[in-house]
């Protein structure tokens, strides 16, 4: 579904070139929930932006649904959820969700249908006519997810969507996200810096390290596809979390010592 092979990306800055991604290769299969985890500066967001064609790699090959990332972007093959909800203050919740549909030229009845459907999915019923400032941070992010789901993209790219939320809200939204993933059967790429979040959500965890940004480990999760928050106390979960921690440590050594 998504294939990244030998990707290098160097940013030219005033302080000289920065190696944001070095020899990065990985695969995402249809229906996967892939998390990218690592400390800041490891290139996890950059990698997501490369997949979304918001950045162009210096070297290497990326395909998304057998297209180049830019073709996939133009064909609206993915929905992207940013760190900030980025809702338009002058539009209501349903107005915000309709925005991409308006841009893509959907008919009025289609817009209404789809908006109703995704508002159901993220459980924002009753808030359709509220403005963003009337919503909590968690609800804003849910509206933002609904907006990314509203059109027919089978890939959902999420860049630390719950990073700014407190842990209680985050736990709940993580559970909801898993339900949503099961119901919509989308392929999800998810950037995070929280180990429990990555382990809880993912079928595959990509562990990354900074300077240069690279992949240190790719973990196929052995947890069942259907999960609830209780599995976080199980042995399986702790074992995977341990392996993630080791992967992170391995990338750090040269820095710290």
């Amino acid at each position: 579904m998504i294939s990244v092979s030998d990707v290098n990306l160097t940013f030219e800055t005033n302080d000289g070139p920065i190696n944001a991604l070095k020899n990065v290769s990985m695969e995402v299969n249809e229906g996967d929930f892939v998390s990218f985890i690592g400390p800041s500066g490891c290139g996890k967001t950059t990698l997501l932006r490369v997949i979304a064609a918001l950045e162009t790699p210096t070297e290497g090959r990326v395909t998304v649904n057998n297209m180049t990332p830019d073709e996939a972007r133009k064909a609206r093959q993915y929905g992207y959820v940013f760190q900030a909800a980025g809702l338009y203050p002058w539009r209501t919740v349903s107005g915000n969700i309709k925005l991409p549909l308006e841009i893509m030229g959907y008919s009025t009845s289609e817009k209404e249908d789809r908006t109703r459907k995704v508002i159901d999915l993220v459980e924002l019923n009753g808030f359709e006519r509220k403005f963003p400032w009337q919503l909590s941070g968690g609800m804003q992010q849910r509206a933002s997810i609904a907006r990314a789901l509203a059109f027919d993209a089978n890939i959902l790219l999420m860049d630390e969507p719950f990073g700014a939320l407190d842990e209680i809200v985050r736990d709940r939204l993580n559970g909801e996200l898993l339900n949503l993933w099961a119901r919509t059967r989308k392929t999800i790429c998810f950037v995070t810096h929280s180990i429990p979040e990555a382990v809880f959500l993912s079928t595959k965890i990509v562990v990354m390290s900074p300077r240069p940004g690279r992949i240190t480990d790719i973990i196929e999760s052995t947890l069942p596809k259907k999960r609830n928050l209780n599995i976080r106390d199980g042995r399986e979960f702790i074992k995977i979390a341990q392996r993630v921690r080791e992967g992170l440590k391995a990338g750090q050594t040269e820095d710290v010592f």
Binding site: A52, L54, R73, K74, A75, R76, Y78, G79, Y80, F82, Q83, A84, G86, Y88, W90, L99, P100, E102, I103, M104
Partner: peptide, 24 residues
């Protein structure tokens, strides 16, 4: 930048970016 990137992910034309985002 996030709002502009978002528009790009929807493959919006620059007229649409002007009308839906920049002008308001």
């Amino acid at each position: 930048q996030i709002q502009l990137d978002q528009m790009k992910t929807w493959s919006a034309s620059s007229n649409q970016i002007l009308w839906y985002l920049r002008f308001p």
